[in-house]
């Protein structure tokens, strides 16, 4: 927990290496390779490729319906791609089911939180640790990260406010001690103050070496926490680049699908 500065510079280095366009020494932690996925006849991802290096934070942004959640579901294994591959840590995981992927270190904090309403807050967190992966995150660590959650630990999860529920949901995903944490629209339906508080926890997560992929509609929030940004439109990448170098006008155009 004390290597805050170390970790920080390491992730910055990773970004620099990628920016130089050269080869990162090792394979990326996550490689979504030319994937098609959808629901029945409705395609949602069309030949999409996404790579995330170890320790990096990638923000995937895009308008409503762009395919962001579909991408995360495909990575987490809830949805099977109809074409292409998902590689994690050099291994093809396309055929693994969702629960197996948790075991290998992928954890999705789903859109809309999806807490277990009949379980207490603490039980929700305990279920998060079902896979029993070793790592820095356990109940005390999550309670330290979100002190408010600790106060509510004995309450039924259904009784919490939206922000509290989102904190529990993030904590629950952390309990799996993931190498890759997927966060889907943390800001959904929450007041900006609350969103800022939640994102303030992100550095504490990445400093553990956790790789993070955040999906957001709130572009500014996303850019402020990410090393790199990738913008989707109708299941395809329309723009990507380093978070600190991306041109706001270009990004807005890509986001709304305006041809320039």
């Amino acid at each position: 927990m004390s290597e805050l500065t170390n970790e920080h510079s390491r992730s910055a280095n990773a970004t620099d290496e990628r920016q130089r366009g050269g080869h990162v020494s090792s394979a990326p932690l996550l490689h979504v390779d030319d994937v098609d996925a959808g629901y029945g006849d409705v395609p949602a991802l069309r030949g999409l490729t996404v790579t995330v290096a170890e320790g990096e934070t990638l923000a995937v942004i895009g308008a409503n319906g762009a395919g962001k959640s579909t991408l995360l579901k495909t990575i987490a294994g809830v949805l099977r791609p109809t074409r292409g591959e998902v590689r994690f840590d050099g291994r093809v995981v396309t055929a693994l089911s969702a629960h197996q992927r948790v075991g290998s270190g992928i954890s999705l904090c789903p859109e809309g939180r999806r807490l277990f309403p009949s379980l207490t807050v603490e039980e929700n967190l305990q279920v998060g640790a079902y896979a029993r992966r070793p790592g820095p995150w356990d109940l005390p660590a999550v309670y330290e990260l979100f002190p408010l959650v600790a106060e509510r630990r004995a309450r039924p999860a259904a009784n919490l406010s939206g922000g509290e529920q989102q904190a529990v949901a993030i904590g629950r995903s952390l309990m799996a001690n993931p190498r890759l944490l997927l966060l889907d629209e943390v800001s959904l339906g929450l007041a900006p103050v609350i969103v800022r508080q939640l994102y303030a926890a992100l550095p504490r997560i990445t400093e553990q070496g956790t790789t993070v992929l955040v999906v957001e509609q709130d572009v500014h929030q996303a850019i402020s926490v990410a090393d790199r940004v990738q913008c989707l439109l109708e299941g395809r990448t329309v723009l990507e680049g380093a978070a600190d170098r991306i041109d706001p006008a270009e990004l807005a155009a890509a986001y709304f699908g305006v041809r320039r």
Binding site: V78, Q100, G103, L108, P110, F116, V127, Y130, A131
Partner: peptide, 9 residues
């Protein structure tokens, strides 16, 4: 589905 995302088979 959420339970599967917690690693529950």
């Amino acid at each position: 589905e959420a339970a599967q995302l917690m690693g529950i088979d």
